[in-house]
Design a protein around this nucleic acid. Structure first.
Lengths: 150, 150
DNA sequence: TATAATCTATACCAAGTTAATAGAGATTAT
DNA sequence: ATAATCTCTATTAACTTGGTATAGATTATA
């Protein structure tokens, strides 16, 4: 699994929308500013996330984006898989792709990739955006200095 | 961590050399044939691995490559890091890169990437090529059908 | 109804990476 | 001498990444 800027920006935007869940829309401009994300790039990303059912939007004046599903139901892993593709280090780590590799029955590496895949999934598929919101709130209430915008 | 063909070929070649450790050299031609690897591509890869101190070579007639270090001392993780670069999903997962990210103190994602990094390292840094050789030998002695070349 | 703010859609592009291929040269056993 | 082998550098086609550009559609509100 490798996280590109596109994935990073996606996660940041969704977290911002989760922090604003049930509180109306947030325009792209604001999300871009908050996340220090190039505006036109974020436009594309949000359109993709909309097609993926993660977010929804309202057009026109006072328009913007909002989370299409409750934060408890969205995991980091789901977003990463949607934006970045499969999280396994090689295709054969996924059981569905086993048969594609001619070396499958006797390859001593496949167990390694499977273990990496399992361990990675365990992390990213168990963290929801509701949990991330709680962590942000905890940071807000701590004495750690946070930028004004959180 | 993503494994490219270069990484895959590197691991296969080193495993073949580990299976032949202390038994003379193996020419690139043979390694390429065994691993189903494009000859000229493998030439480049082995030169890189030689510069990395993993393998060494003998030129001329009856020349070839051999493992430069005992199989017990080479881990999958070391080869992957050398060929593919850092295994963490984002730079900030590495403690040395923390300060590069302006969001570091309050980013709620960095723990996720750190956990992925730790879990991945635990897998790839604990498997040596001596262990892989043992697994290949075990497969040989099992009733699983293996291609003649192992 | 005009306008400005906002999202939608598609095209384009520069730089870098990947997975090779090509060819000329150096070394060495026989 | 020669053939087998490694060494080194250049080249390339296809793809990915991280954007930018432009034109259009929608909608609140003055």
């Amino acid at each position: 699994m490798k996280i590109t800027y596109k994935g990073d920006y996606s996660l940041k935007a969704i977290l911002d929308l989760a922090l604003h869940y049930n509180k109306g829309v947030l325009p792209i401009q604001e999300l871009a500013k908050k996340g220090d994300i190039p505006f036109k790039f974020l436009e594309q990303i949000l359109l993709t996330l909309k097609k993926g059912g993660f977010v929804d939007s309202k057009r026109g004046v006072d328009g913007g984006y909002f989370l299409a599903r409750p934060p408890e139901t969205i995991t980091v892993g789901e977003v990463v898989r949607f934006i970045e593709g499969p999280i396994e280090p090689v295709a054969c780590a996924n059981k569905d792709s086993y048969e594609k590799c001619k070396d499958f029955p006797y390859c001593v590496f496949k167990d390694i990739w499977s273990h990496v895949y399992t361990a990675t999934s365990l992390v990213v598929d168990t963290v929801t955006f509701a949990e991330l919101v709680r962590r942000v709130e905890a940071l807000k209430n701590s004495n750690i200095e946070t930028p004004y915008y959180i």
